[in-house]
């Protein structure tokens, strides 16, 4: 066995948890968006891009179940220029690509950082998955879990790592609540019971500026991140 002494092996390229890139410059804040199929992750990403793109330099990584579906939606909607959107293939296991083996996503993020430097914000959208899908801390700095009222107002009560531990829980499609008989107040109570002090935001992306609260939350984290990186 001839393992080299760890002191001679800088760890800087093996993970990217620190706020600085290898050259000492500040890297972008990485925000993960996860949640079940159809809850509005891609629509949230699109709305965030439209709201924040004038102020910040943004890029997006999508993790499609079938390659490029979400990336192409974002391209069609022209929320960002094509070179700012990258799709990662997940081999039929979207949760693996954001949690257990994050290498392809890290590569995509780092490639965007290299080619679009300086970048302020990278949004990483998971493939539509189940309630247990969360992002590795090696991949994202903060994560948002997106559910919607039409999939059942008992979802917050069911919990799961996404609901209970995400830094922000977004309950989307509130405009549909009366049509599907969803009790928003009960959802809020259940969410608070599961999450304690962690924030919950109710959104309807069909209304003007419906993403505002989420965008403000991201902006607050971004500002904090920049302060930390400047120290």
């Amino acid at each position: 066995m001839h393992l080299d002494p760890p002191a001679t092996m800088p760890q800087r390229h093996t993970h990217s948890a620190g706020p600085l890139r290898a050259d000492g410059s500040r890297r972008a804040l990485r925000v993960g968006l996860g949640g079940p199929v159809g809850s509005g992750k891609t629509a949230s990403v699109a709305a965030l891009c439209r709201t924040l793109r004038d102020r910040w330099s943004i890029a997006v990584v999508t993790n499609d179940i079938y390659t490029r579906e979400d990336a192409e939606y974002l391209l069609r909607e022209a929320v960002l220029p094509p070179e700012r959107i990258t799709a990662v293939e997940t081999g039929a296991c979207p949760h693996t690509a954001i949690r257990d083996d994050i290498s392809a996503n890290l590569e995509a993020v780092e490639h965007l950082e290299e080619t679009l430097h300086p970048l302020d914000l990278v949004l990483i959208e998971s493939g539509g998955d189940n309630l247990t899908a969360t992002f590795s801390k090696g991949l994202v700095d903060v994560q948002i879990f997106v559910i919607d009222v039409s999939s059942g107002d008992d979802i917050p009560r069911k919990g799961g790592p996404g609901i209970t531990t995400a830094d922000l829980l977004v309950v989307n499609k509130t405009d549909l609540a009366p049509h599907v008989g969803a009790d928003l107040a009960a959802m809020a109570v259940d969410a608070e019971r599961q999450r304690g002090d962690l924030p919950v935001v109710f959104t309807s992306l069909t209304s003007d500026d419906g993403i505002r609260e989420v965008a403000d939350w991201v902006t607050a984290h971004l500002s904090e991140w920049r302060v930390k990186a400047a120290v």
Binding site: L3, D4, P6, T8, M9, Q11, H13, T14, H15, S103, A104, L106, E107
Partner: peptide
């Protein structure tokens, strides 16, 4: 080469060595 890059990231973190650093 892409899988080689990804293997390199994992290998450097798991089995750090001068050989891997040089090749990287």
């Amino acid at each position: 080469r892409r899988l080689g890059r990804q293997m390199m990231r994992a290998a450097r973190a798991t089995f750090p060595s001068e050989d891997l650093e040089l090749l990287a």
